[in-house]
């Protein structure tokens, strides 16, 4: 936890150090938010039935998705775990990570968590505020929804982190993961609800998506925010998210133990 705090601190300082990068991210998020807003407005004008939700609510969903996506962006201290691992493995620097008295998964979780917390406070909050003021972003229907959204967002991060970490484990076997990463981010974009909400898919696909963990990353917190789900459903989906986060983190841990043993026995 303390490592996490130090990482958050480092991120904050880095934002000052890499000022242009930071400002560009803010700018990017505003443009992207405006973009998805225009897209859904145009679609809605064509036929409201396509969207399946009132326009303000759909716009809110799409813009918030953009904002959340920024949290998971690479930053000074934390490239996504899979990319970090692949880079360390390729350059042989993974040794230096193994020299730390902290487990690799925990190390990366602290670093990525620190970066994400920074992103939430300094990138998403301002973007959210601006879009509430100027772009017609709605507020959550109740305080309970708002709180549940925040909690759900943390779980989203944990799920995404553990999926990324698992992908990183693959790298120890294959060394190169660029192609797999591309397929992975494609799946993520389509199935997580980042771009297209679940309810717009045909039913058979919705059924498939419901049993996969991806929708917990974007769709769950976003649906809570726009009030598309009732109180009871909120609790259910939070439990589901927590369960996924737990399972995936544990799976990552187990895989890491296996990889570590192999690495230590066979040599890097």
């Amino acid at each position: 936890m303390k490592i996490f705090a130090k990482c958050l601190h480092t991120e904050r300082r880095s934002a000052g150090l890499y000022r242009t990068d930071f400002l560009l991210k803010v700018l990017y998020s505003m443009i992207a938010m405006y973009g998805v807003r225009s897209l859904w407005t145009a679609l809605y004008a064509q036929d409201p039935a396509i969207v399946g939700r009132p326009l303000p609510s759909m716009i809110t969903y799409a813009m918030l998705a953009v904002a959340l996506d920024i949290i998971f962006y690479p930053s000074a201290l934390s490239t996504a775990p899979q990319n970090y691992i692949s880079q360390q493995v390729r350059t042989g620097r993974i040794d230096t990570d193994l020299l730390r008295p902290v487990d690799l998964q925990q190390q990366l979780l602290a670093r990525n968590g620190g970066a994400a917390a920074f992103g939430a406070l300094w990138l998403v909050m301002p973007a959210w505020l601006l879009s509430v003021l100027f772009l017609g972003m709605e507020l959550p229907p109740s305080l309970f929804h708002g709180a549940a959204f925040l909690f759900s967002g943390v779980l989203s991060f944990l799920i995404l982190f553990s999926l990324n970490f698992l992908l990183g484990m693959v790298c120890f076997v294959t060394t190169e993961i660029r192609q797999i990463t591309m397929a992975y981010s494609g799946i993520l974009t389509i199935l997580s609800g980042k771009l297209i909400p679940n309810w717009l898919y045909p039913e058979w696909m919705q059924a498939l998506i419901n049993v996969l963990p991806f929708r917990c990353i974007f769709e769950t917190p976003l649906s809570i925010y726009i009030g598309a789900v009732g109180n009871y459903e909120i609790l259910c989906s939070l439990v589901l998210q927590a369960a996924w986060a737990g399972i995936l983190l544990l799976l990552g841990k187990i895989m890491w133990l296996g990889v570590h043993r192999r690495l230590a026995v066979q040599g890097g």
């Binding site: 490592i3 705090a5 130090k6 480092t10 300082r13 880095s14 000074a76 201290l77 730390r100 190390q107």
Partner: peptide, 16 residues
């Protein structure tokens, strides 16, 4: 850590 100032790396190691 490659992209962060030396002192920040030392700070993180301090906690580790």
């Amino acid at each position: 850590w490659w992209d962060v100032p030396v002192i920040d790396s030392l700070n993180i190691l301090k906690e580790m």
